[in-house]
Nucleic acid binder design. Structure first.
Lengths: 224, 224
DNA sequence: AGCCATCGTGACCCAATCGTGAAATAGCGG
DNA sequence: CCGCTATTTCACGATTGGGTCACGATGGCT
């Protein structure tokens, strides 16, 4: 599913692009009406839906909408500035399928888009899950289970585990851990790391003592 | 579901036609009262609802309405010019089921139409309903019920619930919620989110405390 | 204009979490 | 086995994050 998004504000354009891409859509961008028409006419069949800002240089959204309607019934959603409280009727008259006043919430926009076209291969999301010897970390739901039993880790513990599991076997010094997990500008003693490792080990039980290794003189690692 | 729309203004006729077609209705058009009666009498059973402009040449809307009422109880909605406001009573007297002053918003008209007849071939739209543990959200009617009992959620609460229920389990940070629900350019403290979550929880009662989880340090999620 | 629902914010409180130092323990080389 | 150092453990006070509340602002509706 390909969306054509036309807006002259580059920041908003980027935001929308990122957002819809993250929702699984293909996105083509236009900075003004002329560009939008060019892109559309180059491959009308590829475009499943068009989002048009009303206010654009050279050729405004209304014009684009009218032009496209001469040759196509592709769904069009107009974005109108609040001040332009354009007549809803006028919007539909020009052939738009929907219109949304700025500012809008991405959620609403997404809903409107989905109402117009089939949902894209939503299942394409690769489910953000890390696994390691019975330990499962789902980064979307923030759920951690060990052999199926849920664990309750604090934010720091969680971050440490994610880091270590992502780099199984790699040894991290206390300084590295502090800067990676706590933040590059963290200022504090490195006994802190020990304490947290201890807490992790006790929560992880067997798993902890078995795999969370101390490398004397260097730091910690998750055994391979 | 077939609508018969009679209006002598060709522009408005076309607009209404397009609009209702895009909403999934079948549409028959008449440019004046005579035509409307002809079409209706040719196949009275096919017409589910009639939209009549009052001001039409040859035979006006009132006449059409009266004629049809002699033989049928099909729902009739009258469109009246603003200046004719006084006609409301007369309108019902003549047998119309509803009347709408011009200019009107398409959404209002659609709502009135839907109130009179069943929703059309939902075939194209797979009934936009979200369900989760006794909570039912109908995105078409914006109705939310919990164990059958209707809930009264504010717009923000509604959007939040829709978002969370659509992505069960996924953790949303306050920032994400703000940009997804409030709008990409919302600028404000994130304690706001807490407050709304609190309100949601209290409205959702047991359900709230049971499933609307706080992930300390990260945000909120709807438990799985 | 006035009313009412909704919203945003700051203040306050509580509980979870964190950081620290000190004491206890373990590892390691001789 | 000894002594030294690194690590673990522990307890406690400090900090942070979240829940709740009340108030004022806002905006739609009558």
């Amino acid at each position: 599913m390909k969306l054509l998004i036309a807006d002259d504000e580059s920041k908003l354009r980027q935001l929308l692009s990122d957002f819809f891409k993250s929702e699984g859509y293909e996105v083509a961008l236009a900075a003004d009406g002329r560009e939008a028409l060019e892109i559309f006419n180059a491959a009308p069949e590829d475009v499943s839906l068009i989002i048009l800002d009303v206010m654009m240089p050279y050729v405004d959204g209304w014009r684009v909408c009218k032009e496209i309607r001469k040759t196509s019934r592709v769904p069009i959603i107009m974005l109108t500035a609040k001040s332009e409280e354009a007549d809803e009727l006028e919007s539909f008259e020009k052939g738009a399928n929907d219109y949304i006043p700025k500012p809008f919430s991405l959620n609403v926009l997404l809903a409107r888009v989905q109402a117009r076209i089939e949902k894209p291969a939503a299942a394409s999301e690769p489910a953000n899950v890390l696994r390691y010897n019975g330990l499962v970390i789902d980064q979307d739901t923030h759920e951690i289970t060990l052999d199926g039993k849920p664990l309750n880790l604090t934010p720091i513990e969680y971050e440490v585990m994610v880091l270590l599991i992502r780099n199984k076997g790699k040894v991290y010094s206390r300084e590295q851990l502090l800067s990676l997990v706590w933040g590059y500008d963290y200022y504090g003693g490195d006994r802190t790391v020990d304490t947290h490792m201890g807490r992790l080990r006790s929560k992880l039980n067997d798993f902890g003592v078995k795999y969370l290794k101390t490398i004397r003189g260097y730091g910690y690692k998750l055994d391979n």
